[in-house]
């Protein structure tokens, strides 16, 4: 297939996944920031939301204070934020439009009609650039719904060939990055020494991490016990059955890269490095990660993931 087509498919999936993640972050942050202070509710939650979306620098350039309305506006619709939900959806659609022939009818329809809806929300914003609370909830739901629909129709209808594999690679590279980022922002609340006897203020922090990657229910099914910070880390890093865990992302990335390598009859650095990272995750234990330093582990992972994304681009997309 054309390198440009592969590139468009890869980024289409990345932007979709990013929009979905941002919608979850806004949703969760709103939830925890509105808690009474005694339950851990703090205004600084909006700073964390910016950091875990990788938007803190572009936000700083606007000169605004990171309060609720400023951050929500920035993450949802702001034109100055290249990664606002609106911009992600627009970029996803632009990429989709460039490769309409490689998409199924349903995939295109889900993006296109989703985009038309988003433009309707865009037009309903008030003078401060904000949606009403009710509209905001509906908007975030819509974004999650569009990405689910898109993902579902890709899974159900796409031929299992390179077009599908590149699109999946985009999704899992982005997802791995997102999960790692939220862990990175919140790692301090997951460190064991922070836990205090008799219930922790951080309980709501932990659940909000789980919610951001839609894993709260999954946690209970997997561990069948109350929420422990090291188990939250275990779930999001090492549990293969958890679809947003780092290990699950890398199981997929390695698999799809293998399939591409087999179909093209050639392996490269992307295949080798992703297999290595996957093997490292398979051998890791959560206590070992904590001993060596959770923060160091996560930042190392984010760098490795970026590097592998770069290798995929060099090998196939240009």
């Amino acid at each position: 297939m054309l390198s440009r087509t592969a590139d468009n498919l890869y980024w289409l999936a990345r932007y979709m996944e990013r929009a979905d993640y941002l919608a979850r972050v806004v949703d969760v942050t709103r939830r925890i920031a509105h808690l009474p202070r005694a339950y851990g509710g703090q205004a600084s939650e909006w700073d964390s939301a910016l950091i875990s979306s990788g938007a803190e620098e572009t936000f700083a350039e606007t000169g605004r204070t990171a309060d609720e309305s400023a951050v929500i506006c920035f993450l949802t619709f702001d034109e100055r934020n290249p990664s606002s939900i609106r911009n992600c959806m627009e970029l996803a659609r632009t990429n989709a439009r460039a490769v309409r022939t490689a998409l199924t009818h349903e995939m295109w329809e889900s993006i296109n009609s989703g985009w038309l809806e988003i433009r309707r929300f865009d037009a309903r914003r008030n003078a401060d650039g904000l949606l009403s609370a009710e509209d905001l909830t509906a908007f975030l739901d819509l974004v999650k719904q569009v990405s689910t629909q898109f993902d579902g129709s890709a899974y159900r209808n796409m031929l299992r060939n390179d077009a599908y594999w590149f699109s999946r690679l985009g999704l899992y590279i982005e997802r791995a990055d997102n999960t790692a980022r939220i862990l990175d922002v919140k790692y301090h609340v997951l460190l064991p020494e922070v836990e205090t006897v008799g219930g922790s203020l951080d309980y709501f922090q932990w659940t909000s991490i789980l919610r951001a990657v839609s894993a709260l229910t999954a946690y209970h099914w997997v561990y069948r016990q109350s929420i422990k910070p090291w188990l939250v880390a275990d779930l999001l890093i090492l549990r293969p059955e958890m679809p947003r865990s780092l290990i699950s992302c890398y199981e997929n990335i390695s698999r799809f890269l293998d399939q591409i390598g087999k179909a093209y009859g050639r392996q490269g650095l992307a295949q080798r490095q992703s297999r290595q990272l996957y093997a490292r995750l398979e051998q890791a234990r959560i206590d070992g990660i904590f001993q060596a330093g959770l923060h160091e582990f996560i930042t190392g992972f984010i760098e490795d993931n970026n590097r592998i994304g770069g290798r995929i681009a060099e090998q196939y997309l240009v």
């Binding site: 297939m1 054309l2 390198s3 440009r4 087509t5 592969a6 309409r100 022939t101 390179d162 590149f166 591409i260 093209y264 196939y316 997309l317 240009v318």
Partner: peptide
């Protein structure tokens, strides 16, 4: 392009070497 089952290319997807036209593929 979809109905024909052929690649939809832009100028930057093609290049010419020794008077032969190629497309950049994965």
């Amino acid at each position: 392009a979809d109905k024909l089952g052929v690649e939809l290319v832009e100028g930057r997807d093609l290049f010419v070497a020794d008077d032969v036209v190629f497309m950049r593929t994965t």
